[in-house]
Write a protein that binds this DNA or RNA. Structure first.
Lengths: 189, 189
DNA sequence: GTCTATAATTCGATAGAC
DNA sequence: GTCTATCGAATTATAGAC
């Protein structure tokens, strides 16, 4: 009878349904174009309920856009395969259920201040530290910056703009080709 | 007395002032958040004039977002320096006066259908053909796709999101590091 | 918990005086 | 050419009945 996890209180199910609908709408329309009304309709509930459960559009966005890159400890990995590992990890996170926050952030970051700030935070708190263990500290910001350009571009072209030639790239090709690039950026080799 | 090119009819000067203001506002806010009223204020004229000169917000956007990548003939270049040449060319275009259309498109493409379609067109009509002369036709879409991810990511991180470590990269570093990546992507080597 | 009604803004666009 | 006034639509958010 329920699509959602069983044995939840009704209020929790409603809240989860709103969050799920909000993820879809925010991810496909961006923050500005998404409306409370549309999200409510997609969740099959009344628009007022969205406000009741989340308070405001801003807070709803902040909640569903939350997510972690959850990078593994790169120092513990085979040093020759760091690039490939990084790409494979990013792809997994972005295509996972819990990774829905990334397309949302990315699509809204271009015109929403909160999303843009969150994106900066994300790279400062997770990508930069990861680069610190892979080479000289002085060059870590530069290496992190280069890594960021390549990964953000892949995500933008593939998941947001959906450029046909990028969408058509198969996973192995991406891991191999872009992995080689990240390997060079990350290790400075 | 005039900031704009001398000896224009007043109507042309007004039109140019609106277009210049629109470029700034669209580039910094994106399509949705930019308002006719704000653009008019930035241009120092009445909001009604924007409609009179451009008809609608859509047509104003289409006009100021227009631009060309204007790629040189890559086949005529030193084959070992194609990557560096590409990056240097992109940087020049994006930072030039007439290249203002690109940040505008990029910032709006995530949530504006016209901008997204225009971006697809741009790569299909200009990047893909350029790849055709550099290697086997079969792999041209794949090579163009990879090039697109790296260049879009650089533009996004540097000009739209303004990620500090990417903004701080100096031009020589970008040309060298990202040039090497494009060299590999474009030539398939 | 849920919904109706509506307040309060804001926006793009138009009509018309001067 | 320029501006005042305003329309009509859409939005977030709230008040309050049931």
């Amino acid at each position: 009878m329920n699509d959602k996890p069983l044995k939840m209180k009704k209020s929790d199910r409603t809240r989860a349904a709103i969050a799920a609908a909000a993820q879809r709408i925010f991810a496909s329309q961006g923050y500005e174009r998404a409306t409370i009304r549309e999200i409510a309709a997609a969740a099959g509930i009344d628009p007022t309920m969205v406000m009741r459960y989340f308070g405001s559009k801003d807070r709803l966005f902040a909640e569903v856009a939350e997510f972690d890159l959850d990078l593994p400890d790169l120092a513990a990995l085979d040093r020759d395969r760091i690039g490939e590992t990084l790409v494979a990890h990013f792809l997994s996170v972005w295509e996972s259920e819990s990774g829905g926050g990334f397309p949302i952030l990315l699509r809204s970051a271009a015109s929403n201040d909160y999303a843009a700030a969150r994106m900066q935070q994300l790279f400062a708190a997770q990508v930069l530290p990861a680069m610190l263990v892979l080479g000289p500290p002085d060059s870590a910001p530069q290496r992190a910056g280069l890594v960021a350009t390549q990964m953000l571009g892949l995500a933008l072209a593939r998941y947001v703009l959906r450029l046909p030639p990028v969408v058509m790239l198969d996973r192995d090709t991406i891991v191999r080709e872009i992995g080689a690039t990240l390997q060079r950026y990350a290790t400075g080799a």
